[in-house]
Design a protein around this nucleic acid. Structure first.
Lengths: 100, 100
DNA sequence: CCAGGAGTTCGACGCGTGTCGAACCGTTGG
DNA sequence: CCAACGGTTCGACACGCGTCGAACTCCTGG
C-alpha cells in the first residue's frame, strides 16, 4: 500500500511557514540533498546529518508539515521527496532560487 | 551626513539567515510594504504593524542584520529600504519569488 | 516467531526569540 | 534652550525550538 503521511493541501501552503522550515541549516541541507537526488526520493536515514534519530525525525516532520516534502511509507522505510510541483505552483521561482 | 547603519557585505549574506529573517509574519509584512513603496524607502514608524516601538525596532534590526534591508539615518528618522540589488546578486530570483 | 532495524514519540533541557514597558539618546521646531 | 518626537536599548517574561536518550511501534529477514 503506497500510504502517504498527512501533509497540507497545496492551496493551504503558507509562505511564512515554508520560509521558516527552510530557514534552518539542517533542513536546508535535507532539501538540497533531496533536490540533488536522481531518484527524487530518499529514505530518512540515508542522509547523514550527524544528529540523533530523534532530531532528524523532528526536522523531517517540520518539512512535511510545512508542505515542503512528501512522505511515502513503504515497509519499515519512509521515502521522502520534494513537493516541487506544488511549491512551484504556489510560490513560483522560490525553490529554484533557494536551490541555486 | 548620509550615515548608514552597519550591515553585512553582500558576499557575506547567508541564505539560512535571510530565510529566517523572512520567515516571520511581521517582517514579511515590512518587506512587502517596502517593496510596494514608490519612493523605495520608508521610515520605521510609517508602517503600522500594531506592535510596540520596541518590538518594531527589534524586527527592523533582524532584517538589517540579515542583510535584507538598508538603513539610512537622517535627522531623527531612519529610512529603511530593501537591498534589492544585493539580494538579487547573491540569491537570484529569491526576492521576486517571495514578493509575488 | 523473534531479533533487529527504521522511524516516531516522549519528557527534559538550554537557548533563542517575540513581546512589552520603561528608561534612554539625538535631533529639531518653536 | 528645551519639550517633544522618532528610535534604540534594557531587563523581564513566556513561549518555541533544536537537541538528546530512552522507550516505543511497526515491519521484515532468517
Amino acid at each position: 500500500m503506497p500510504a502517504l503521511l498527512d501533509q497540507p493541501e497545496t492551496r493551504d501552503l503558507e509562505l511564512t511557514t515554508v520560509l521558516q522550515a527552510l530557514g534552518d541549516p539542517m533542513r536546508l541541507r535535507i532539501v538540497r540533498e533531496l533536490a540533488a537526488c536522481e531518484a527524487g526520493e530518499r529514505t530518512c536515514g540515508s542522509i547523514d546529518l550527524g544528529i540523533s534519530k530523534a532530531t532528524r525525525s523532528h526536522h523531517y516532520r517540520v518539512l512535511r508539515e510545512a508542505g515542503v516534502t512528501n512522505t511515502r511509507v513503504e515497509g519499515t522505510h519512509r521515502y521522502v521527496s520534494l513537493r516541487r510541483d506544488d511549491l512551484d505552483e504556489r510560490f513560483p521561482g522560490l525553490l529554484e532560487a533557494i536551490l541555486s
